[in-house]
Amino acid sequence: MTNPRLVEGSASAFEERLTRQGVSRREFLKFCGLMAGTLALPARYAGRIAHALETAVRPPVVWLNFQDCTADTESFLRASQPDVDDLLLDILSLNYHETVMVPSGRMSIKSLDDTVRDYAGQYVCVVEGSIPTRDGGVYCGIGGRTALSIAQQVCSQALATLTVGTCAWEGGLAAAVPNPTGAVGVKDAVPGLATLINLPGCPVNVANLTATIVHFLTFQQWPETDETGRPHFAYGDEIHEECPRHEHYEHEEFVREWGDLGHRQGWCLFQMGCRGPEAHHNCPSVKWNDGTEWPIGAGHGCLGCSEQRFWDRHSPFYVPGDD
């Protein structure tokens, strides 16, 4: 990056910031190991990741909320092992995010405009929530402008756009039948973006968002994706194949009623509507709530929330799907 405003970081300054936030060297290296694991890289990459994070130029980030429920922001802010959000905020410069920023009104819009102007082609744009297109886009407005117009301006000048959550990817909940507001994802609202990485899920898993950014800072390129723009490391495997209950499926040991013997013994939830066979996501290994649990582990079927049009294709959710 050639922008003089972007200053390359130094290992000592980075370590000082970590110390100030109460993150020990050991915790930091553990985080780097976790990132290597999430990215399906051999453990020896942890050192390379650590070096990259210590010296990386902190890319400016703008986070746009449109037709959203802020759950992706929550996913991002609530992570705590080992303070992933603090680490992320240390390696990024989060210039605009309505939910957490101090300025409001005109001054907040100024932060967005300044970033887009001063760092054109160098900032990362994160989008949360779908973009309504019906009736001129009136169903989502920020600072007197439509979400559609903001997305077209901000995403098109970004180094890369990352969609977090299924809504920003392809419309999600707001786009479910009958799609009252003409909601679409970024790929349809701003077609032809050079770099669009989609991180669906309802909500996004912060481990995958963080790992995507860490991958970029470490290798100066974005992770490889499938044809829909979802990174292979996170969306390459079918949940059903990786499911710890898969053996019960093979033996036709199914939960048939909530609380029955099979349910209490952790049998397969397919007959209860589990969409694991239709879903591609790394939930079985990365899990949720700081890596402690995930829906199937807690005894509920998977909704298949990282798949296109899941609100319509996977509902009714408690009726068995295709295997």
Partner: peptide, 24 residues
């Protein structure tokens, strides 16, 4: 300044799914 129409999306759906939609 944002509207999604979740009430309209829910019409005609299986009532057991209601919590999954409204939770969002």
């Amino acid at each position: 300044t944002m509207f999604r129409g979740i009430e309209l999306v829910m019409q005609g759906r299986d009532p057991r799914d209601a919590w999954i939609f409204t939770q969002r």
